[in-house]
Amino acid sequence: MPIEAPAAVPPPPPAVGARFEAVVLPWLDAAWNLARWLARDDADAQDVVQEAMLRALRYFDSFHGGDARVWLLAIVRNTYFTLRAKALPLEPLDEDSHPLVDERATPEALTLLAVDVGSLRQALERLPPPLREALVLRELEECSYKEIATITGQKIGTVMSRLSRARERLRLELAQPARGGATP
């Protein structure tokens, strides 16, 4: 039977302890949400979360209380950026390489046109990763600035300015949905 010989052998189930299950597993959705938004692709997100969970399991001994969600999300984003750097060593991560529209010149009369899930999803996916990450952590995961700073290893001031750039940019994208097309 061809079914018995799958192309990719799934990794064996990891040995998960009861404490890991109780502390870390409740945040699997959060891990997936962040990974999926960063990777923008199910298969890549799968790799990121699988690897991040393995790391979490490996480092779990060094987790001494605190906020397990923040701890796990930090692992997820670091895993994503590590795997991404391996896969695409030439693409810079810095959002400065993505030309931003001059936010200060935004006409005040510009109003949001479409805020349905589909448009929002496309607009979010077009944001450069550092801005997308800040916005997903704040708006979808509802992290405080301090939590975002811990997860991303940035200063709170950086978090604040990234969030405001992310939102201004998102607002522009949504006000001009036809502009540019969906080039990643």
Binding site: L28, N33, Q46, V117, L120, R121, L124, L140
Partner: peptide, 8 residues
């Protein structure tokens, strides 16, 4: 809610 991705 449609924007939040849940783990498969």
């Amino acid at each position: 809610p449609g924007l939040y991705r849940r783990a498969p």
